[in-house]
Design a protein around this nucleic acid. Structure first.
Lengths: 328, 328
DNA sequence: TTGAAAGCGGTACCAG
DNA sequence: CTGGTACCGCTTTCAA
């Protein structure tokens, strides 16, 4: 078994309560004693027992992340970011990939300080939980839990609006998933609404379906799209990976960006790749999302009131991948 | 705060030690008392406190999974499978995406019963740990910990061997990643060794590099490959996703499988998709890997001796995607 | 400044 | 079969 404070106490010739204080850096212990104890603890390879500690302190300094859909990459960057963010606040992140209810029960037994529930499918309303829950994603619409989310609808709408403002009339959205995926649906709906409310012709400005959100899917869809008699002059892409495929398809068809086609990509991740033409994006920077998430988590842990639904507004970043249309 | 066994005891009018027994389904409690207690526990929404339980029993019934590279999909199916497997053994899986050493420390503090370390990059040797560790992947070659792994080298070698046995002479392997990725390297090396030891002409039988293991990468690489004056008659693909792209590229070039090109895909996942032609595969079924992993975990938990390095041998499953070559 | 002791929520043993 | 109790490792009063 592991080293306990009693072992340290024995080795240091003090009582174990003194050790406890020393290790928690309490001012109630004289400096030399403290450093000596800490030194011994290090030598012995002491690791505080979370079970014992959280049993008495009712805090575990741990956040549980419920993420039943690891196979879908959608959230991995977000979770990585959140993990970093929470690390800075000296919280540890633990992930469960079990089904929502089971995962929440697990985290309740573990007495984590708070739970973040991610779910892009249509999962059950989180079970009752002693531990406060924060959700990300729009899965639970009248959820009783605080929710942080990106206004995807608005993101796509802004993109449409921008394209119209520079003269585009045939604007397509590539990214309808056809499966149950609320996150994608929101974007599609944002597009459809925009088309309607801005009075675009739905014949030219339509939604293009893909079977997944990866590069090849974008490639394939665009190949088809470009065979139209009157292909769009502007494309909005539902994800970064799709965009890569779209670019490929455009180039292979000997068209150029932005000369023949302008493109804006939905994206929360800062552009890391170098494309031939830097990609215009619309979305909420990942960092902002994780910051907000961490903030809300700290709030619920400290029992402070939070807004129930935080909708982060997307930013439009226009680069050379967009160009005004000449004469319609 | 949560409901404790004392609350239940009060409500049931029994001592709390009886409650403890009843909830653990001990035969030392009369049936009616037991059911009554369990009923009350359910009504009150009781969740056993892991901290308290593991503090006294020194068991948490939890396995910690160290997985610093969630962004890379490679292992997600494996982890999902392992999670299921362990669930059946009534173990809970918790995942940490932190850097190896940090994650292991965390799990030590949490007193998980065992740790599985996944790592496809070149990470530090796991720190010293009170908790037993099992590794998956070849990252740590002279690792002191039990390791379960797939014999990737042999997998690719078998595929080459099979192709030769049915007359192929120009066999290419698609899947070199060029980055530091030991798992991929193993396959590439398996291929190179096979080419050499079987006396294939390395000019025709070569390794084709891809930038990632996804569909588009396979598509792109194959498009190029097929432009050769003398393209291969057989292709071995490094991953399932790559294979999808390879198939696409072949069809688009108006070639047919297996008539013009035979293909075997490295794959641990049972074929779920329906391709035009069912795909031949070589690899260890995922289920086998997770079973073995679970088995070794149970062994180390129970302090039983295990083989240090378990190398699972791949299976070759040949379908209509392969065809003997006619006259070289 | 240090030590002693109570108690967090359970388990397990022993007495009744 | 049920109740009482010691104790797991640690934090946190309270006394010395």
């Amino acid at each position: 078994m592991g080293v306990t404070i009693k072992d340290i106490a024995k080795s240091a010739g003090v009582s174990y309560s003194t050790v406890s204080k020393a290790l928690r850096d309490s001012p109630l212990v004289k400096e030399p004693t403290k450093t000596r104890i800490i030194e011994i603890a290090k030598q012995l390879g002491y690791q505080p027992n979370v079970a014992a500690r959280s049993l008495v302190s009712k805090k575990s300094n741990t956040i549980g992340v419920v993420w039943p859909t690891i196979e879908r990459v959608t959230h991995s960057a977000l979770i990585t970011g959140l993990n970093k963010q929470l690390e800075q606040l000296s919280y540890t992140t633990l992930i469960s990939i079990n089904e929502m209810e089971f995962a929440i029960n697990t985290f309740n037994r573990y007495q984590v300080d708070a739970i973040v529930a991610f779910d892009d499918r249509n999962s059950k309303e989180p079970a009752n939980s002693t531990v406060p829950i924060v959700t990300y994603g729009i899965a639970h619409d009248q959820s009783p839990f605080p929710t942080v989310d990106v206004n995807r609808r608005q993101a796509i709408r802004s993109a449409v609006q921008y394209f119209m403002s520079i003269g585009h009339k045939r604007i397509c959205y590539v990214g309808d998933l056809l499966q149950e995926d609320r996150l994608q649906e929101e974007k599609v709906n944002g597009f459809k609404q925009a088309v309607k409310s801005f009075g675009l012709d739905p014949y030219y400005s339509r939604v293009v379906s893909v079977s997944d959100l990866e590069q090849y899917d974008g490639y394939e869809a665009t190949k088809k799209l470009l065979k139209d008699r009157e292909p769009p002059t502007a494309v909005i892409s539902g994800s970064h990976d799709l965009s890569k495929g779209i670019l490929r398809a455009v180039y292979e068809s000997d068209l150029s960006i932005p000369h023949d086609i302008s493109i804006i990509s939905y994206d929360n991740i800062p552009a890391t790749e170098n494309f031939e033409v830097p990609l215009s994006t619309v979305g909420v920077p990942l960092q902002l999302i994780t910051e907000k998430l961490a903030e809300v988590l700290m709030d619920v842990i400290n029992g402070e009131e939070t807004e129930k639904r935080i909708f982060l507004e997307p930013e439009l970043k226009i680069t050379e991948s967009c160009q005004p249309i000449n004469g319609g």
